[in-house]
Amino acid sequence: MTAWIALVLVGLMLGAAVLVLYLDNLVAAIAAASVVSLLLSLLFALLAAPDVALTEAAVGAGLSGAVLALGLRRLGLIDLGKREYPDA
């Protein structure tokens, strides 16, 4: 049972990681990176590492997304709904 859950989580995580590289919208790419961290924290919980899971959920999924989004705002690239960067 645990193995099936892990299979689904790993599949979603790798899919989100590929999306980080291929989404045109940088806001969406940052959101996909946060999804990778969130699924990774669930995997840490499966691996009997609750401390690491808590850290990854707070730091990787929460704070890192906030830092990147604020940086995007300072860079002037935050533009929801528009393709701001043509290159993948």
Binding site: D51, L54, T55
Partner: peptide, 25 residues
């Protein structure tokens, strides 16, 4: 809570510190 229960439950200074920073943010 997370900071002060770091020696009993999962958690501790790093995780709780991030939550504190989130509160102010």
């Amino acid at each position: 809570y997370i900071v002060l229960h770091g020696h009993l439950t999962p958690g501790g200074g790093f995780q709780g510190g991030v939550v504190l920073a989130a509160a102010f943010f």
